[in-house]
Design a protein around this nucleic acid. Sequence first.
DNA 1: GCCCATAGTATCGGAAATGATACCGTCATG
DNA 2: CATGACGGTATCATTTCCGATACTATGGGC
Lengths: 122, 122
Amino acid sequence: MPRIRHTALDCSPGCAVEATLELIDGKWKGVILYHLLEGTLRFNAIRKRLPNVTQRMLTMQLRELERDGFLLRTVYPQVPPRVEYSLTERGRSLEPVIMALKRWGDRHTTFGRSTAVAEAAQ
Amino acid sequence: MPRIRHTALDCSPGCAVEATLELIDGKWKGVILYHLLEGTLRFNAIRKRLPNVTQRMLTMQLRELERDGFLLRTVYPQVPPRVEYSLTERGRSLEPVIMALKRWGDRHTTFGRSTAVAEAAQ
DNA sequence: GCCCATAGTATCGGAAATGATACCGTCATG
DNA sequence: CATGACGGTATCATTTCCGATACTATGGGC
Protein backbone atom coordinates (compact mmCIF):
# COMPACT_ATOMS: atom_id res chain seq x y z
CA MET A 1 0.00 0.00 0.00
CA PRO A 2 1.06 3.54 -0.53
CA ARG A 3 2.37 5.52 2.34
CA ILE A 4 0.46 8.75 2.34
CA ARG A 5 -3.00 7.67 1.61
CA HIS A 6 -4.92 10.16 3.68
CA THR A 7 -3.59 13.64 3.65
CA ALA A 8 -6.95 14.73 4.98
CA LEU A 9 -8.83 12.19 7.02
CA ASP A 10 -12.19 13.71 6.30
CA CYS A 11 -13.60 11.04 4.06
CA SER A 12 -16.68 9.82 5.85
CA PRO A 13 -17.02 7.09 8.48
CA GLY A 14 -15.40 4.36 6.39
CA CYS A 15 -12.17 6.25 6.59
CA ALA A 16 -11.33 4.80 9.96
CA VAL A 17 -11.22 1.41 8.28
CA GLU A 18 -8.64 2.58 5.79
CA ALA A 19 -6.66 4.44 8.40
CA THR A 20 -6.26 1.25 10.41
CA LEU A 21 -5.49 -0.84 7.36
CA GLU A 22 -2.82 1.60 6.39
CA LEU A 23 -1.05 1.14 9.68
CA ILE A 24 -0.99 -2.64 9.71
CA ASP A 25 -0.35 -2.95 6.05
CA GLY A 26 3.08 -3.77 4.79
CA LYS A 27 4.05 -7.16 3.68
CA TRP A 28 4.85 -8.58 7.10
CA LYS A 29 3.35 -6.33 9.73
CA GLY A 30 0.30 -8.45 10.36
CA VAL A 31 2.27 -11.58 11.10
CA ILE A 32 4.87 -9.73 13.13
CA LEU A 33 2.17 -8.27 15.34
CA TYR A 34 0.55 -11.66 15.62
CA HIS A 35 3.71 -13.31 16.83
CA LEU A 36 4.52 -10.52 19.23
CA LEU A 37 1.12 -10.97 20.85
CA GLU A 38 2.65 -14.09 22.37
CA GLY A 39 5.46 -12.15 23.95
CA THR A 40 8.80 -10.46 23.50
CA LEU A 41 11.00 -11.73 20.70
CA ARG A 42 14.53 -11.11 19.50
CA PHE A 43 15.27 -10.11 15.96
CA ASN A 44 16.36 -13.52 14.81
CA ALA A 45 13.53 -15.20 16.66
CA ILE A 46 11.06 -13.24 14.58
CA ARG A 47 13.04 -14.06 11.51
CA LYS A 48 12.73 -17.76 12.17
CA ARG A 49 8.94 -17.47 12.25
CA LEU A 50 8.87 -15.68 8.93
CA PRO A 51 10.84 -18.00 6.71
CA ASN A 52 10.61 -15.83 3.62
CA VAL A 53 11.38 -12.41 4.96
CA THR A 54 14.68 -10.80 4.10
CA GLN A 55 16.72 -9.14 6.80
CA ARG A 56 16.24 -5.81 5.15
CA MET A 57 12.47 -6.12 4.99
CA LEU A 58 12.19 -7.32 8.56
CA THR A 59 14.22 -4.38 9.77
CA MET A 60 12.08 -1.98 7.78
CA GLN A 61 8.79 -3.39 8.94
CA LEU A 62 9.93 -3.40 12.55
CA ARG A 63 11.07 0.21 12.29
CA GLU A 64 7.75 1.28 10.91
CA LEU A 65 5.86 -0.54 13.61
CA GLU A 66 8.09 1.15 16.15
CA ARG A 67 7.56 4.53 14.52
CA ASP A 68 3.82 4.02 14.69
CA GLY A 69 4.03 3.23 18.37
CA PHE A 70 3.07 -0.43 18.19
CA LEU A 71 6.25 -1.89 19.53
CA LEU A 72 9.24 -1.17 21.66
CA ARG A 73 12.77 -1.85 20.51
CA THR A 74 15.20 -2.56 23.30
CA VAL A 75 18.89 -2.73 22.52
CA TYR A 76 21.18 -4.41 25.01
CA PRO A 77 24.75 -3.15 24.74
CA GLN A 78 26.36 -6.52 24.24
CA VAL A 79 28.47 -8.23 21.69
CA PRO A 80 27.08 -9.85 19.70
CA PRO A 81 24.17 -7.43 19.84
CA ARG A 82 20.88 -8.34 21.44
CA VAL A 83 17.72 -6.52 20.43
CA GLU A 84 14.32 -7.35 21.78
CA TYR A 85 10.97 -6.39 20.37
CA SER A 86 7.81 -6.22 22.43
CA LEU A 87 4.37 -4.75 21.95
CA THR A 88 3.42 -1.48 23.54
CA GLU A 89 -0.01 -0.97 25.00
CA ARG A 90 -1.05 0.54 21.70
CA GLY A 91 0.30 -2.53 19.98
CA ARG A 92 -1.69 -4.82 22.23
CA SER A 93 -4.78 -2.74 21.52
CA LEU A 94 -4.64 -4.19 18.03
CA GLU A 95 -5.30 -7.66 19.33
CA PRO A 96 -9.01 -7.68 18.40
CA VAL A 97 -8.11 -6.62 14.90
CA ILE A 98 -5.36 -9.19 14.47
CA MET A 99 -7.49 -11.95 15.89
CA ALA A 100 -10.42 -11.04 13.68
CA LEU A 101 -8.11 -11.28 10.70
CA LYS A 102 -6.77 -14.60 11.87
CA ARG A 103 -10.18 -16.10 12.57
CA TRP A 104 -11.46 -15.11 9.18
CA GLY A 105 -8.39 -16.53 7.51
CA ASP A 106 -8.65 -19.77 9.42
CA ARG A 107 -12.22 -20.22 8.36
CA HIS A 108 -12.24 -18.94 4.84
CA THR A 109 -8.91 -19.52 3.17
CA THR A 110 -7.56 -22.69 1.69
CA PHE A 111 -4.77 -22.63 4.20
CA GLY A 112 -7.22 -22.40 7.03
CA ARG A 113 -9.53 -25.18 5.88
CA SER A 114 -7.69 -27.77 7.90
CA THR A 115 -8.57 -26.01 11.13
CA ALA A 116 -11.99 -24.88 9.98
CA VAL A 117 -13.81 -27.72 11.68
CA ALA A 118 -12.12 -27.21 15.00
CA GLU A 119 -12.83 -23.48 14.83
CA ALA A 120 -16.44 -24.04 13.87
CA ALA A 121 -16.88 -26.27 16.88
CA GLN A 122 -16.22 -23.39 19.26
CA MET B 1 0.54 -5.08 -1.40
CA PRO B 2 1.97 -7.56 -3.79
CA ARG B 3 -0.31 -10.07 -5.38
CA ILE B 4 1.41 -13.35 -4.86
CA ARG B 5 2.62 -13.17 -1.36
CA HIS B 6 1.98 -16.72 -0.31
CA THR B 7 2.78 -19.26 -2.93
CA ALA B 8 2.75 -21.80 -0.16
CA LEU B 9 0.51 -21.01 2.78
CA ASP B 10 2.49 -23.13 5.16
CA CYS B 11 4.08 -20.43 7.21
CA SER B 12 2.88 -21.07 10.73
CA PRO B 13 -0.33 -19.92 12.39
CA GLY B 14 0.23 -16.24 11.77
CA CYS B 15 -0.15 -16.90 8.11
CA ALA B 16 -3.92 -16.73 8.26
CA VAL B 17 -3.53 -13.13 9.32
CA GLU B 18 -1.55 -12.28 6.24
CA ALA B 19 -3.82 -14.30 3.98
CA THR B 20 -6.79 -12.24 5.10
CA LEU B 21 -4.91 -8.97 4.89
CA GLU B 22 -3.89 -9.81 1.38
CA LEU B 23 -7.50 -10.17 0.31
CA ILE B 24 -8.76 -6.91 1.75
CA ASP B 25 -5.70 -4.99 0.84
CA GLY B 26 -5.73 -2.65 -2.06
CA LYS B 27 -6.05 1.00 -1.59
CA TRP B 28 -9.82 1.15 -1.38
CA LYS B 29 -11.13 -2.30 -0.68
CA GLY B 30 -11.59 -1.75 3.02
CA VAL B 31 -13.79 1.29 2.60
CA ILE B 32 -15.71 -0.23 -0.27
CA LEU B 33 -16.57 -3.25 1.83
CA TYR B 34 -17.49 -1.01 4.71
CA HIS B 35 -19.94 1.00 2.66
CA LEU B 36 -21.44 -2.09 1.06
CA LEU B 37 -22.19 -3.47 4.50
CA GLU B 38 -24.97 -0.90 4.59
CA GLY B 39 -26.51 -2.25 1.42
CA THR B 40 -26.40 -2.39 -2.33
CA LEU B 41 -24.84 0.56 -4.11
CA ARG B 42 -24.48 1.71 -7.67
CA PHE B 43 -21.10 2.51 -9.17
CA ASN B 44 -21.42 6.25 -8.86
CA ALA B 45 -22.90 5.98 -5.41
CA ILE B 46 -19.73 4.29 -4.23
CA ARG B 47 -17.71 6.88 -6.05
CA LYS B 48 -19.43 9.67 -4.17
CA ARG B 49 -18.42 8.11 -0.89
CA LEU B 50 -14.78 7.86 -1.92
CA PRO B 51 -13.97 11.40 -2.99
CA ASN B 52 -10.41 10.66 -4.00
CA VAL B 53 -10.74 7.48 -5.96
CA THR B 54 -10.30 7.57 -9.70
CA GLN B 55 -12.79 5.80 -11.90
CA ARG B 56 -10.11 3.41 -13.05
CA MET B 57 -9.08 2.47 -9.53
CA LEU B 58 -12.65 2.00 -8.38
CA THR B 59 -13.35 -0.32 -11.29
CA MET B 60 -10.21 -2.31 -10.58
CA GLN B 61 -10.86 -2.69 -6.88
CA LEU B 62 -14.46 -3.71 -7.50
CA ARG B 63 -13.39 -6.30 -10.04
CA GLU B 64 -10.90 -7.81 -7.63
CA LEU B 65 -13.46 -7.95 -4.87
CA GLU B 66 -15.82 -9.65 -7.28
CA ARG B 67 -13.12 -12.07 -8.38
CA ASP B 68 -12.45 -12.96 -4.76
CA GLY B 69 -16.12 -13.65 -4.21
CA PHE B 70 -16.86 -10.78 -1.86
CA LEU B 71 -19.36 -8.98 -3.99
CA LEU B 72 -21.85 -9.42 -6.76
CA ARG B 73 -21.94 -7.19 -9.80
CA THR B 74 -25.36 -6.84 -11.40
CA VAL B 75 -25.65 -5.12 -14.73
CA TYR B 76 -29.07 -3.87 -15.80
CA PRO B 77 -29.38 -3.58 -19.56
CA GLN B 78 -30.46 0.03 -19.63
CA VAL B 79 -29.28 3.24 -21.08
CA PRO B 80 -27.59 4.91 -19.42
CA PRO B 81 -26.17 1.79 -17.81
CA ARG B 82 -27.02 0.78 -14.29
CA VAL B 83 -24.68 -1.44 -12.34
CA GLU B 84 -25.27 -2.47 -8.76
CA TYR B 85 -22.80 -3.86 -6.32
CA SER B 86 -23.82 -5.91 -3.31
CA LEU B 87 -22.00 -8.14 -0.86
CA THR B 88 -22.17 -11.89 -1.15
CA GLU B 89 -22.47 -14.06 1.92
CA ARG B 90 -18.69 -14.38 1.87
CA GLY B 91 -18.45 -10.62 1.72
CA ARG B 92 -20.72 -10.22 4.71
CA SER B 93 -18.60 -12.75 6.57
CA LEU B 94 -15.92 -10.08 6.64
CA GLU B 95 -18.09 -7.85 8.79
CA PRO B 96 -16.31 -8.69 12.06
CA VAL B 97 -12.99 -7.89 10.44
CA ILE B 98 -14.14 -4.63 8.92
CA MET B 99 -15.82 -3.53 12.11
CA ALA B 100 -12.75 -4.39 14.17
CA LEU B 101 -10.69 -2.23 11.84
CA LYS B 102 -13.20 0.58 12.09
CA ARG B 103 -13.48 0.47 15.87
CA TRP B 104 -9.73 0.56 16.25
CA GLY B 105 -9.46 3.44 13.84
CA ASP B 106 -12.20 5.37 15.59
CA ARG B 107 -10.50 5.01 18.91
CA HIS B 108 -6.86 5.32 18.03
CA THR B 109 -6.38 7.58 15.06
CA THR B 110 -6.44 11.32 14.94
CA PHE B 111 -9.40 11.22 12.65
CA GLY B 112 -11.28 8.99 15.06
CA ARG B 113 -10.61 11.05 18.17
CA SER B 114 -13.76 13.06 17.73
CA THR B 115 -15.91 9.98 18.09
CA ALA B 116 -13.68 8.30 20.64
CA VAL B 117 -15.74 9.37 23.61
CA ALA B 118 -19.00 8.18 22.14
CA GLU B 119 -17.43 4.85 21.25
CA ALA B 120 -15.90 4.46 24.68
CA ALA B 121 -19.32 4.94 26.22
CA GLN B 122 -20.62 1.79 24.59
C1' DG C 1 45.11 -14.10 12.72
C1' DC C 2 40.62 -16.05 11.28
C1' DC C 3 35.96 -17.16 11.75
C1' DC C 4 31.44 -16.89 13.86
C1' DA C 5 27.29 -14.80 15.88
C1' DT C 6 23.92 -10.85 15.99
C1' DA C 7 21.66 -7.18 14.13
C1' DG C 8 21.92 -4.55 11.28
C1' DT C 9 23.16 -0.75 6.40
C1' DA C 10 23.96 0.41 1.62
C1' DT C 11 23.08 0.11 -3.08
C1' DC C 12 20.95 -1.39 -7.15
C1' DG C 13 17.29 -2.91 -9.92
C1' DG C 14 12.85 -4.87 -11.19
C1' DA C 15 8.05 -5.48 -10.45
C1' DA C 16 3.79 -3.99 -8.95
C1' DA C 17 0.45 -0.55 -7.65
C1' DT C 18 -1.47 3.74 -8.49
C1' DG C 19 -2.37 8.27 -10.91
C1' DA C 20 -3.51 11.29 -14.99
C1' DT C 21 -5.72 11.79 -18.99
C1' DA C 22 -8.30 10.79 -22.88
C1' DC C 23 -11.70 8.09 -25.12
C1' DC C 24 -16.28 5.08 -25.84
C1' DG C 25 -21.46 3.90 -26.56
C1' DT C 26 -26.24 5.05 -26.30
C1' DC C 27 -30.43 7.19 -25.29
C1' DA C 28 -33.05 11.37 -23.57
C1' DT C 29 -33.35 16.05 -23.32
C1' DG C 30 -32.81 20.84 -24.90
C1' DC D 1 -27.49 18.76 -33.42
C1' DA D 2 -25.12 19.14 -29.24
C1' DT D 3 -24.84 17.87 -24.51
C1' DG D 4 -25.05 15.11 -20.50
C1' DA D 5 -25.68 10.80 -17.70
C1' DC D 6 -23.50 6.28 -16.53
C1' DG D 7 -20.15 2.96 -16.27
C1' DG D 8 -16.77 1.96 -17.98
C1' DT D 9 -11.46 1.17 -21.27
C1' DA D 10 -6.95 2.30 -23.00
C1' DT D 11 -2.56 4.14 -22.64
C1' DC D 12 1.20 6.10 -20.45
C1' DA D 13 3.92 7.90 -16.54
C1' DT D 14 5.13 7.72 -11.94
C1' DT D 15 5.49 6.22 -7.41
C1' DT D 16 6.24 2.77 -4.16
C1' DC D 17 7.46 -1.57 -2.75
C1' DC D 18 10.28 -5.33 -2.42
C1' DG D 19 14.25 -8.70 -3.37
C1' DA D 20 19.13 -9.78 -4.00
C1' DT D 21 23.45 -8.97 -2.76
C1' DA D 22 27.28 -7.14 -0.50
C1' DC D 23 29.10 -4.80 3.37
C1' DT D 24 29.68 -3.37 8.57
C1' DA D 25 31.02 -3.63 13.80
C1' DT D 26 32.84 -6.16 17.77
C1' DG D 27 34.21 -9.46 20.96
C1' DG D 28 35.00 -14.45 21.95
C1' DG D 29 36.78 -18.92 20.72
C1' DC D 30 40.05 -21.81 17.89
